[in-house]
Structure formats: structure tokens, C-alpha cells
């Protein structure tokens, strides 16, 4: 018997050997193109639905277990000093049954939750084709948002409503994590890698953005906001910002190298 058990435990140990750290982080991360599947609701609404469902699930499991335990704790109090427990020994068949049936039940619940979670996971990770792309740079301890026309904002992410927003993110120094409270979405930023997240700003308003990966003394002051504007308002704002930049940059651009500047003489940018 003990030899079998020993062999069994050794086999288990051996089985665990090939499960070495899966260093899949080495795989370059790039956004997956949106697939044809259209979702009825934006991810953060979907998130709330799923969370609600999962809470029901775990509440039922937890309350059932607690009630059974509470009943046993109450019903089987010791009645006289020499009383002993009368739990029957299980026959081998019963023991097997008491393993297989609970495992099957847990497994069923796991698979159900996994399927539900996978659906939402795919929605979070599959970026719609028409997403508006904004670059996010994290640094200790502020956020920089760069729009496609090189307009930059600090700590304030202004986005048009009703448009999926794709954030392409990296960090200048340490690991940060970009969390938008309203849109229930978090993704880390780090040097040397590009990560992404997307969200669907469905209502005009201002929402909190915070850092969610510990990054030093300023971690808790690394917050900002998402400002969702009506499409026209946003376009007007972006244009005026761009105009302001180009006005101030005209002087500099004489020396600045702008590509493709086909006929700039070498000495113009020599140092």
C-alpha cells in the first residue's frame, strides 16, 4: 500500500515537472483585429451583467455550504461526556462517488463560468475595426495622451462619445496600470512593450482614471479623468488644439526636420 502511495506521489511530482514557467510574455503582444461578431452592449455593461451573475453563483454556493455547516455545528453538539462521533466509514464505491459527484458539480459550474468569462474576455480583447486610436504614455507619476495628429494632453483623456477608443500604451519608466472606473477596464503599461485596451464611451461625462500598479510615492496621486464629449465638440476641440500647436511650431519647423523633406540641405540640420 505504502509503495503504491509513494509511487503515486512521485508520479504526481513528475507530472508537475513539465509545467515550468510558461514564459509567454516573450511573445510580442499586438492587438487582434475585431472579428465580425457584433456585441449588443459595450464591454463595461457586459461586465456588470457578468459580475452580477457570478455574484449570484458564488452567493448560492457559499450560503449553501455555510448553512450545511451551521446546521451540523448546531445539530451535533456533544450531549454527554463520553459520546463519540458516529460517522460511517465509506465503502470504496461510496468514497469514489463522494469524489466524482462533487467534482462533476464543481466542474460544471467552472465550465459554465469559464464560457461566460471567455465571451466577455473576447469582447474586451477584440478591438472593433473602427476604433479611434490614442497613444498613452505613463511616467512617474502622470499620464500623457497623444492623439493621431500629435496633439498631447496630460492627465485628461478627451474622447468622442459613441466611438470605440483604442489605447496603445507604453511606459517610460516603471510598470503602471491604466484603470478607467466607468469602463471597468485595466491594463498595465511597461517599458519595452506595447499593450492595448479599448472601451466604448457611451455617455457624455467625466470619469475617474487611476493607476493600479504600485509605482512609488506618487502612486496614489497618479490619477486623471476621461472626458467624454459629443462628437462635434470633440472634433472642434481637437482642431483648435492642432491649430494652436502648428501656430507655435512654425518657427521651430524651419530647423526641424520634417519628413519627407526632400530638399533640405545637409548643413541645415548639421550639428
Amino acid at each position: 500500500m505504502s509503495i503504491q502511495a509513494r509511487a503515486g506521489s512521485m508520479a504526481l511530482m513528475l507530472l508537475s515537472l513539465p509545467l515550468i514557467p510558461r514564459p509567454a510574455q516573450a511573445v510580442q503582444v499586438v492587438p487582434v483585429p475585431g472579428q465580425s461578431r457584433q456585441w449588443d452592449v459595450p464591454p463595461h455593461v457586459h461586465f456588470d451583467e457578468l459580475l452580477h451573475e457570478v455574484f449570484w453563483d458564488i452567493t448560492i454556493i457559499g450560503v449553501l455550504m455555510a448553512m450545511v455547516a451551521a446546521y451540523f455545528l448546531f445539530a451535533y453538539r456533544r450531549r454527554f461526556p463520553d459520546e463519540v462521533g458516529r460517522l460511517q466509514k465509506l465503502s470504496p464505491q461510496a468514497a469514489l462517488g463522494w469524489m466524482i459527484i462533487p467534482v462533476a458539480l464543481f466542474m460544471a459550474d467552472d465550465i459554465y463560468l469559464f464560457a461566460k468569462g471567455w465571451e466577455l474576455h473576447k469582447q474586451y480583447r477584440e478591438v472593433p475595426e473602427n476604433a479611434y486610436e490614442i497613444r498613452v504614455t505613463g511616467a512617474m507619476w502622470s499620464w500623457t495622451y497623444t492623439y493621431p495628429n500629435e496633439v498631447e494632453t496630460y492627465g485628461e483623456l478627451k474622447v468622442p462619445a459613441e466611438t470605440p477608443i483604442l489605447l496603445r500604451m507604453s511606459s517610460e519608466d516603471v510598470v503602471h496600470s491604466h484603470f478607467i472606473q466607468q469602463y471597468r477596464v485595466t491594463e498595465d503599461l511597461m517599458p519595452g512593450r506595447v499593450t492595448y485596451m479599448w472601451f466604448m464611451p457611451d455617455k457624455v461625462g467625466e470619469y475617474v482614471v487611476t493607476c493600479r500598479e504600485y509605482c512609488g510615492a506618487g502612486h496614489s496621486s497618479m490619477y486623471g479623468k476621461v472626458i467624454v464629449m459629443a462628437r462635434e465638440e470633440f472634433d472642434a476641440w481637437l482642431e483648435s488644439e492642432a491649430a494652436a500647436i502648428s501656430a507655435s511650431a512654425t518657427v521651430a519647423s524651419a530647423q526641424q526636420v520634417v519628413s519627407p523633406a526632400a530638399d533640405v540641405s545637409a548643413r541645415d540640420f548639421g550639428r
Binding site: 510580442q28 499586438v30 492587438p31 487582434v32 483585429p33 526636420v257 519628413s259 519627407p260 523633406a261 526632400a262 530638399d263 533640405v264 540641405s265 545637409a266 548643413r267 540640420f269
Partner: peptide, 27 residues
């Protein structure tokens, strides 16, 4: 970025190979 340099009579440009993912993102 690239420039025409009249003095050298050539384009100055980076010697770079750009890897694009199947979706067309620079990797």
C-alpha cells in the same frame, strides 16, 4: 525619416527592416 542631401547627392535614411504582424501592426 529620410532626407535628400545635395552635398552627398543621396538620400539619408535608416537601414531598417520593419516587421509587421499579420494584422499590419509594427512589431
Amino acid at each position: 525619416k529620410f532626407f535628400w542631401s545635395p552635398r552627398d547627392a543621396m538620400f539619408l535614411h535608416p537601414n531598417v527592416y520593419i516587421l509587421l504582424s499579420p494584422e499590419g501592426r509594427v512589431t
